[in-house]
Nucleic acid binder design. Structure first.
Length: 428
RNA sequence: CGCGGGGUAGAGCAGUCUGGUAGCUCGUCGGGCUCAUAACCCGAAGGUCAGGAGUUCAAAUCUCCUCCCCGCCA
């Protein structure tokens, strides 16, 4: 029986061009997708762009172009970059397309029909960058600032629609208690505690935000990020030339086996999203994995620090494969990881040039010199296990595993030079 | 305040659940070898396992306390 394996990257927010963090997630997802294809699984790797929201609308205005043109351009950057680095995605979904809107509406009607939508008043300080209301933040009378983005908040007082997350307190608590659902394990308890503290309904619409999907029967309302962007994972599945509805998605690879995301949006994927799916009577994804963040030479990357790593420039300078290797080999997948130039050089030289490259080189050279450019016939002792004098304690660094493979923890993957090292030893 | 994760060799980490010679990769140093790239192979140095107390024949591992880092709540 052929196993389906549907996995997703986040749908990247097209406020700006792709950054190294998006590249990291996507490279990892791609490696896993390729590994599962090698296992014979029927893989669907989904990536794409989240294209709505006030921040994008403002960025477009600032750039002096129509919003649609702006997101087309940005989405183009993402698509081009994925092509450049050989991402093997099966779907590239965009949330500003009619097909997506169609599915969002169907989903909303289901949830609404099941009684999990209510009106409510949303009043408070709003961070446009987070696209979130902040509470307990207006102490000294002045305009409060967002702690994350260090920018002034904006006062809002509006009627929104709310999703009744509180209806799902028990089932969600049970879900996140499952060991397999949230990875890495170190982040599971955090989510558990959050759920135990009590789930609160959250708003799913905004007013006065024309750049979004209109809410049925609610003139002036558009859907807020989660009831729009998360649905993209489902939108992506049906054949682009066929019918676009939930029933078709269910026969086309939903539910996903894995949502691969950054740790910052773990809660939305591990709590909000499954509750939304429950509300719509849809099956849940099997696993959500929140990987860590990348730093550079020990420091957070950011525009204010001026130490961002532009992927285009990086690839132009050192090539794609060294970056792929370094990120997947040296960063403990799940934990935060530091990108260091010296370390990068050492690893690429050691693993790719010296271990893998030189292995190929000397193999070819031996073949040429002693075996008339051929691979010699099998000898008597070829079934004997290769000598591996060094004991290995790392589970991801042993012989017999592919060079890029998932480790024992589902959803993880890791570069592994071990097999090539063993072959080198064998030649001695 | 509360909650979660972490502190093991110069660096990054595994080992902790199930106590029993402290391990992997990189870096450093020395030796060897050629089919091979300043390659490859072999070897060495380098760690009071954050600190303290306890349990035990035996603690990186179990219990309690303290200190320090990071994250969540924001």
């Amino acid at each position: 029986m052929v196993h389906r394996f549907t996995l997703t990257t986040p749908l990247y927010y097209v406020n700006d061009k792709p950054h190294i963090g998006s590249v990291y997630t996507t490279l990892a997802a791609d490696a896993m997708a390729r590994w599962h294809r090698l296992q014979g699984d029927q893989v669907c790797l989904i990536t794409g762009c989240d294209e709505h929201g006030l921040k994008i609308q403002r960025s477009a205005t600032a750039a002096g172009v129509p919003t649609k043109d702006y997101v087309d351009c940005m989405a183009g950057h993402f698509a081009a970059l994925w092509q450049r680095i050989g991402i093997s995605h099966d779907r590239f979904v965009r949330t500003s397309t009619p097909r997506h809107q169609q599915l969002v509406h169907e989903f909303y009607e289901r949830v609404h029909g099941n009684g999990h939508i209510r009106p409510g008043q949303q009043r408070g300080w709003y961070c446009v960058a987070c696209e979130e209301f902040k509470d307990g933040n207006s102490e000294d009378g002045g305009t409060p600032h967002c702690a994350i983005h260090d920018r002034p908040l904006e006062w809002r007082d509006e009627e929104n629609l709310f999703f009744c997350l509180s209806h799902f307190q028990e089932p969600i608590a049970q879900l996140v208690a499952q060991e397999s659902f949230i990875g890495p394990a170190s982040r599971r308890r955090e989510v558990q505690r959050f759920v135990e503290a009590g789930l609160r309904d959250f708003s799913i619409s905004r007013v006065d935000l024309p750049w979004g999907i209109p809410v049925p029967r609610q003139p002036g309302h558009t859907f807020y990020v989660w009831f729009d962007a998360l649905l993209g994972y489902v939108t992506a599945l049906p054949d682009p030339d066929g019918p676009q509805d939930l029933a078709t998605a269910l026969t086309s690879g939903w539910p996903a086996q894995l949502h691969l995301i950054g740790k910052d949006i773990l809660r939305f994927h591990a709590v909000y999203w499954p509750a939304m799916l429950m509300a719509a009577d849809l099956p849940l994804p099997e696993r959500v994995f929140g990987h860590g963040f990348l730093t550079r030479e020990g420091r957070k990357m950011g525009k204010t620090l001026g130490n961002t790593l532009d992927p285009e420039a990086l690839f132009a300078k050192v090539g794609v494969e060294p970056v792929r290797w370094y990120l997947l080999r040296d960063i403990q997948f799940g934990e935060d990881g530091d990108i260091q130039q010296k370390r990068f050089l050492d690893l690429v030289n050691n693993d790719l040039a010296n271990t893998v490259g030189n292995l190929v080189n000397r193999t070819v050279s031996m073949s040429r010199r002693w075996f008339a450019d051929c691979v010699p016939p099998r000898g008597e002792n070829d079934d004997a296990p290769p000598p591996s004098p060094r004991r290995r304690s790392c589970d991801h660094d042993g012989p017999g595993k592919p060079v890029l493979c998932p480790t024992r923890s589902p959803g993880r993957c890791h570069g592994n030079p071990g097999p090539c090292r063993d072959r080198q030893r064998l030649f001695e």
